[in-house]
Write a protein that binds this DNA or RNA. Structure first.
Length: 554
RNA sequence: UGGGGCGUCGGCAAGCGGCAAGCCACUUGGUUUUGAUCCAAGCAUUCGCAGGUUCGAAUCCUGCCGCCCCAGCCA
């Protein structure tokens, strides 16, 4: 794959910025920001935005601020804020200097609201929510002016001061911009810019009982930080006139340019904080970092390298098209990265005992195997070989056609990194289940092919006595429909078999020694990661990251 | 039926008047002690549709068709 982080893909936002720089706009400076609300964990969709904002800033020698858009205290928490900081760092980005918060600007925001009132461009309304909805009109009919719209400026000032002072109950009054109730753009029909809400804020505590709305806050925060390009998703396109209106009507010189791009949509997953919250709160998954989640912390725990997410984000590109990206694209970048960095090892997920009759009972050989067959520099590891071993149940058949390149009764197969064995007997229990294979090995086949015959198959194995019991979690997609977000109730699309717990897997000793979060390739199976929290050398726990590309089963 | 957007290969996505980039997927060969990796080759006479302008149109114009977003005191 030739797409790398060093070769930014062409997209319309880059073109705009390139033009701006060529025209000397903003003195050639580029300043972006990533503005999450701390009301949930970051997901793949955010990764796209992070890569865009931080990537653009870096490319043009600018910087990117991290700013928490914390204007709705009821939904926000410090846990979320902390997780967001961690996830951004994990993804490999550094924000410019200290973290910003919309709440840092509450005092200034209040001042600009007063400016608007003084200019006759904002008024205190006392319609209740339901009345306001009626006055707003519909998509096809204009709205009506609020009866309180023409309040005197002095009265508006007085009321707004008292709103701040806490003289009124929640929701009694709101501050509204005075724009145009007949605008075809509903966002311009005298939008609310402040509401009374007695909620404890994670940063300002109980200092405020009025909080500014997004549309008023975001543009001013951008301007205060000297943002040049304010990149956001498509649903804010209709808000751009309001973004511009606010900045055009207050005494702030800086006027950032808002540019919208389409959200990332990944097939078979969900990228909505609200829905992800539901999965967690209703226990469909085991927390925000469940490896099946499309959260950054979930993908981290799943074993996705941060670099693969960055490559993926570069590869999907930026456009204004509503799209659905194949999960396969992400997985391919994950494999790509892991193929290069992951040490190899052997693990048997569904053990079938094999007794090698012509191998001495007490003998244990420490065979040497490469840690990475394409990268000698990674060195070698010891793999113990003994008379009793395990192979995977799926690697044996009593009868099979020539396409089956594994072990068959009365035939031979190569044991990876070891000898060629021949199976001559299958032992079964009363129910007819295979319990053991009796084989012989050819001691002339270590590191070389047998003479006079071809052995086409290679299977993996572990020593029965020297391997370590491990728990392996194999994942399938969390949803069984490509677009769960489109369902009436996305919970009905949840795949009941998204997690398979394998409690009796066996891994070679080198794998048991893994450090938490260390990634491996279990040869012929896929990529696996030692669980970040539950893995220990005594009780190894691995999560499947992604399977190897498999042309046999597909 | 108001307003704002968007339609280029199976999935992403460049291109912005002069022979349709790239990635993923897929197909076919080769290497291989991983049915992996790797290597080589193939994969849109056509850009939602229909007209028009032009020597020349995915790119410009006109008209249709389809899809997405907006009526929170959420962001």
């Amino acid at each position: 794959m030739s797409t790398t982080e060093n070769e930014p893909a062409a997209n319309f936002i880059r073109h705009i910025i390139l033009d701006d720089i060529a025209n000397g706009k903003n003195g050639g400076k580029v300043q972006t920001r990533f503005p999450p609300e701390p009301n949930g964990y970051l997901h793949v969709g955010h990764a796209k935005s992070i890569c865009l904002n931080f990537g653009i800033a870096k490319e043009f020698n600018g910087s990117c601020n991290l700013r928490f858009d914390d204007t709705n205290p009821e939904k926000e928490s410090d846990e979320y804020a902390k997780s967001i900081e961690q996830d951004i760092k994990w993804l490999g980005f550094e924000w410019h200097k200290e973290i910003h918060h919309a709440s840092d600007y509450f005092e200034q925001l209040y001042g600009y609201a007063v400016e608007l009132i003084e200019a006759g461009l904002a008024f205190v309304d006392e319609l209740n929510a339901e009345q306001m909805r009626e006055y707003r009109g519909t998509l096809t009919e204009p709205g009506k002016n609020s009866p309180y719209r023409d309040r005197a400026i002095a009265e508006n000032l007085d009321l707004f001061t008292r709103m701040r002072a806490g003289e009124f109950p929640d929701s009694k009054y709101v501050l509204r911009a005075k724009i145009d109730m007949s605008s075809p753009n509903i966002n311009m029909r005298d939008p609310i810019i402040y509401r009374i809400k007695r909620a404890h804020h994670i940063r300002t505590g109980d200092k405020w009982c009025i909080y500014p709305m997004y549309d008023f806050t975001h543009c001013i925060s951008d301007a205060l930080e000297g943002i040049t390009h304010s990149l956001c998703t498509l649903e804010f396109e209709d808000h751009r006139p309001l973004y511009d209106w606010v900045l055009d009507n207050i005494s702030l010189e800086c006027h950032p340019q808002q540019i919208e791009f389409s959200r990332l949509a990944l097939a078979y997953t969900i990228t909505s904080k609200r829905k992800l919250t539901t999965l967690v709160s209703e226990k469909f998954v085991d927390g925000w970092d469940d490896p099946r989640m499309s959260t950054l912390s979930g993908m981290r725990r799943r074993g996705y390298p941060a670099a693969s997410l960055r490559h993926f984000c570069t590869a999907v590109g930026i456009s204004k098209k509503n799209h659905v990206t194949d999960m396969g694209l992400l997985e391919q970048y994950v494999r790509d990265e892991l193929n290069v960095i992951a040490p190899r090892g052997m693990a048997v997920l569904r053990p079938l005992k094999v007794v090698i009759e012509n191998y001495p009972e007490d003998k244990i050989e420490q065979l040497e195997a490469p840690i990475h067959p394409q990268n000698e520099a990674m060195g070698t590891r010891k793999v113990p070989f003994s008379r009793e071993i395990y192979i995977d149940q799926e690697d044996f058949m009593e009868e099979a056609n020539n396409k089956f390149k594994r072990l068959v009764l009365d035939k031979e197969v190569r044991l990876r990194n070891a000898y060629v064995i021949h199976c001559h007997q299958v032992i079964k229990d009363e129910q007819g289940n295979m319990t053991e294979l009796r084989c012989t090995y050819d001691n002339q086949t270590l590191g070389k092919n047998p003479e006079g015959r071809k052995v086409k198959g290679v299977i993996h194995w572990v020593s029965a006595s020297e391997s370590v019991a491990a728990e392996v979690r194999v994942y399938d997609r969390l949803f069984n429909t490509p677009n769960p977000a489109a369902a009436e109730d996305f919970r009905t699309c949840i795949n009941p078999n998204s997690l398979s717990l394998i409690s009796s897997a066996r891994v070679e000793p080198s794998l048991a020694e893994a450090k938490p979060e260390q990634c491996f390739q279990f040869e012929r199976e896929g990529y696996f990661v030692a669980d970040r929290y539950q893995h220990s050398p005594e009780k190894p726990v691995f999560n499947m990251t992604v399977g190897l590309r498999d042309t046999w089963n597909s």
